Computed example of a mutant assay.
Amino acid sequence: MFRLPYNKFQKAVEIITLVLILCQIVYCAVFYPQLPSKIPTHFNFAGEIDGWGGKSSILVLLAATIGLYIMLTVTLFFPRLWNVPVKITDQNRGVVFKYVINMVLWDKLLIVGCFFYMTYCSVSSVAMGWWFTPFLLISVLGVTFYYTIKLFLIR
């Protein structure tokens, strides 16, 4: 296990992600006392509210956000366990690590941002909109496919 050094861009993406998590925590803390006893807990594919639960369910969303962030962050500490489509050599190690770190950082940012939006929609009792699920899938999978293709093209 070792810590890979971040470049300035990677540090910026990590900081933005952490700020979003802090904003979600503050948002939940500020609005929790004012929440009604039942809040939206599930949205269908069209983004419409189709499930309700107790107000403490907002804490589950917050815990899921933090849990996903931690799990994705921990993966960066174990580069030897990464499953990449190319053999890592001394010549390509820097580029492979850069691509994988960028992919994980972008995915963390997108996931945390989407979970913050889900929290906002639950607290505000508003529909997420039809565009949310396609955006989440296309953005996270798009980042993953983009960096996977870049890894395949390494020579």
Score class of each variant (00 low, 15 high):
56 S>T: 11
113 G>I: 06
106 W>Y: 11
60 V>A: 04
53 G>T: 01
70 I>C: 10
123 V>E: 01
46 A>I: 11
17 T>S: 15
136 L>T: 12
76 L>G: 04
136 L>H: 02
73 T>V: 11
111 I>Y: 15
142 G>Y: 11
94 G>K: 07
131 W>R: 14
89 T>V: 07
142 G>V: 09
118 M>E: 12
25 I>V: 09
109 L>W: 14
50 D>M: 01
44 N>C: 14
14 E>I: 09
68 L>P: 00
141 L>M: 15
102 N>C: 06
99 Y>G: 02
117 Y>R: 15
145 F>T: 02
11 K>W: 15
138 I>H: 09
9 F>K: 12
26 V>T: 08
17 T>F: 07
58 I>D: 00
29 A>I: 11
76 L>Y: 01
111 I>C: 15
22 L>T: 09
38 K>T: 15
82 W>G: 14
61 L>P: 01
126 V>E: 00
66 I>C: 10
64 A>V: 15
108 K>S: 15
116 F>R: 15
32 Y>M: 02
145 F>W: 04
75 T>A: 00
83 N>Y: 07
28 C>V: 14
143 V>L: 05
141 L>V: 04
96 V>T: 06
9 F>R: 12
27 Y>H: 07
48 E>N: 08
96 V>A: 06
20 L>S: 05
104 V>N: 03
29 A>Q: 05
47 G>K: 07
46 A>H: 01
13 V>A: 06
76 L>D: 09
84 V>D: 00
48 E>A: 08
22 L>R: 03
139 S>H: 10
144 T>N: 14
82 W>K: 11
140 V>D: 03
27 Y>G: 07
81 L>R: 14
140 V>C: 10
141 L>H: 12
99 Y>H: 12
125 S>Y: 04
21 I>L: 08
64 A>N: 14
139 S>V: 12
20 L>C: 01
94 G>N: 04
98 K>G: 02
140 V>Q: 11
82 W>M: 13
113 G>F: 13
86 V>P: 04
92 N>F: 15
58 I>G: 05
77 F>T: 06
135 F>T: 13
77 F>S: 06
37 S>P: 05
46 A>V: 13
44 N>A: 11
57 S>E: 08
31 F>A: 02
133 T>Y: 03
61 L>Q: 05
62 L>E: 08
35 L>M: 08
9 F>V: 14
46 A>G: 10
121 C>D: 04
106 W>E: 08
123 V>M: 05
15 I>Q: 06
54 G>S: 07
131 W>E: 07
70 I>V: 13
127 A>W: 04
45 F>H: 13
123 V>L: 02
67 G>F: 05
7 N>F: 02
8 K>P: 03
122 S>T: 10
92 N>Q: 06
36 P>M: 05
52 W>T: 02
24 Q>E: 13
75 T>N: 06
143 V>E: 10
127 A>H: 10
100 V>R: 00
71 M>T: 06
75 T>G: 00
29 A>P: 05
67 G>K: 02
93 R>P: 04
32 Y>R: 03
115 F>Q: 13
65 T>D: 04
52 W>S: 01
25 I>Q: 05
78 F>Q: 13
138 I>N: 10
73 T>N: 11
58 I>N: 07
113 G>K: 12
21 I>Q: 11
45 F>R: 09
132 F>W: 10
34 Q>D: 12
24 Q>K: 01
79 P>F: 04
145 F>E: 05
88 I>D: 06
